[in-house]
Amino acid sequence: MTADAGQDRRSVASYGEVLDVVDVGRVRLTRRYGCIRRDQFEIVTKEPFPSAFRDWIASRGELRERPTFYVIEAPGAFQLTVAPRAGRAILMPRLATDLTWQAQTAREIAEVLDGMLNHGSCLANTRQAG
C-alpha cells in the first residue's frame, strides 16, 4: 500500500469507501476513506492475533484492555482497536499525521503481525513503525 494508491479515488470518495485492499502475507489490509486528511485501516487475519502482537503494539502507546478486546492509544499518532480472537483490528490515525505516514504505519503493523503469524515471534526483522 503506497501513499498515493487510491489518490484518484479519494478526490471523489465518501466516508467509509474502500480505497484499496492489499494482502501483506497472511494479513489483509483494507484502506477506507475517512476525510480529506485521514484514512482508516482494517487489519484482518484468518487466525487469532498472537499475544506477542499485543505486547509489541502496547509499547507504542497506552494499552486499555477489556476481557475480549484491547485499545492502544498513541496520542498524536493513532488509536488501534483489536479483537484478537476475531482476528480483526481498526487503525484510526490522528489528524496530526499525514496520509503517507498513515499508510506506512498501517503497512508496518501488518508486516509485524504477518511476521509473528509466520514465525510465532515478534522478533522477525521488522522496521519500527513510526
Binding site: 477489556r66 475480549t68 483489536v82 479483537a83 476475531a86 480483526r88 481498526i90
Partner: peptide
Amino acid sequence: SSVEWDALVQP
C-alpha cells in the same frame, strides 16, 4: 460492523 462488536457481542 465494529471490532468491538466482533469481540464482545458477536460471540
